[in-house]
């Protein structure tokens, strides 16, 4: 009798577990499958002997590390380094600028605030498709004065990226800043803290998750961009991964998919590592925060 009760209880608990948690595992598998199956294709091409991107539905027909070895003969690793430098600098810059602007919009009342906020967002929407001549000319002009910011300089590319950093990043952060109760800064202000102390000491600590998200997103954005990078970085040795790898496959008639896919597989690793590492900030950032004291 007692056994039956225990069994029933156990059964009920299991049913509840299934209903509340258990079903999420198979769902996760499905999502993971859908998210990754096209990429299996990429990996399959990367390790194939004769590589065409979509020439066959047969995956992993042959195995060879030749494509990965061949990467060593190209400037791939130089591009990797460039990408990481440019990506990190842009991410740090975007976070700092975006957070500062978001703080101002979230905490200060000033005339034209609403209009400025809207304009920031809208200016970013300008289709830049035809702007490559403009950017080129602009950098040439600046480069005449400050050579380090001219064409083919990584610093110039970072600066151009930062020019686009304010729009959506400010918004992303602005929303989160607003969720931090204003009473916190009021209290600090009464304690005699200056605005910069409140900003650096209190607010930024509370919005760490969003800083991580913005940093990650802007790193990924820089990583994937090849339109601006292609205009600005004119020498092979200063290219980023996206620019360099794109020219392997840019020709309609003769594309080197083997190198490209092998490169992509390696190139996606830093992003995955970064995401994995930043997860604790992205999810669960506030649990130990000072909101609860």
């Amino acid at each position: 009798m007692a056994d039956i009760v225990v069994d029933r209880r156990r059964g009920a608990r299991r049913a509840r577990w299934l209903a509340e948690v258990g079903w999420k595992y198979p769902l996760a598998l499905v999502v993971i499958f859908l998210a990754t199956f096209p990429l299996l294709y990429v990996v399959s091409v990367a390790v194939a002997q004769n590589s065409t991107l979509t020439g066959s539905t047969r995956l992993f027909g042959s195995f060879s590390t030749a494509n990965f070895v061949a990467l060593g003969e190209t400037s791939f690793w130089t591009w990797c380094l460039n990408t990481i430098i440019i990506g990190s600098a842009t991410a740090v810059g975007s976070v700092l600028m975006g957070a500062a602007a978001a703080y101002a919009f979230s905490r200060f009342q000033f005339r034209g605030r609403r209009f400025a906020l809207t304009s920031l967002l809208i200016v970013q929407m300008f289709p830049q498709m035809l702007a490559f001549v403009a950017i080129y000319l602009l950098l040439l002009t600046i480069g005449d004065v400050i050579p380090a910011l001219g064409i083919n300089s990584k610093l110039a590319l970072i600066a151009v990226y930062l020019g686009g950093a304010l729009g959506s990043n400010t918004f992303l952060m602005y929303g989160f800043f607003n969720t931090i109760p204003k009473s916190l800064d009021e209290a600090a202000k009464i304690d005699g803290a200056t605005h910069s102390q409140i900003y650096w000491g209190i607010i930024l600590r509370l919005v760490t998750p969003i800083l991580a998200v913005v940093g990650l997103l802007s790193f990924i954005g820089t990583f994937g961009d090849f339109i601006l990078a292609r205009i600005i970085l004119t020498q092979e040795s200063s290219w980023t991964l996206a620019v360099g790898m794109y020219q392997w496959v840019a020709s309609e008639l003769n594309a080197n998919w083997g190198l490209f896919t092998a490169g992509s597989v390696i190139a996606s690793l830093p992003i995955l590592i970064l995401f994995f590492a930043l997860q604790k900030y992205i999810v669960g950032g506030l649990t130990a925060g000072s909101v609860k004291g």
Binding site: N50, T52, T54, G55, L253, N254, A255, W257
Partner: peptide, 22 residues
Amino acid sequence: LDIAEAEFMAGNSPYIIDGPWN
């Protein structure tokens, strides 16, 4: 293009119309 190249490389056709670049 991909399919034509892949099939030719796999020996599935004796002829392909293609250029010196390949």
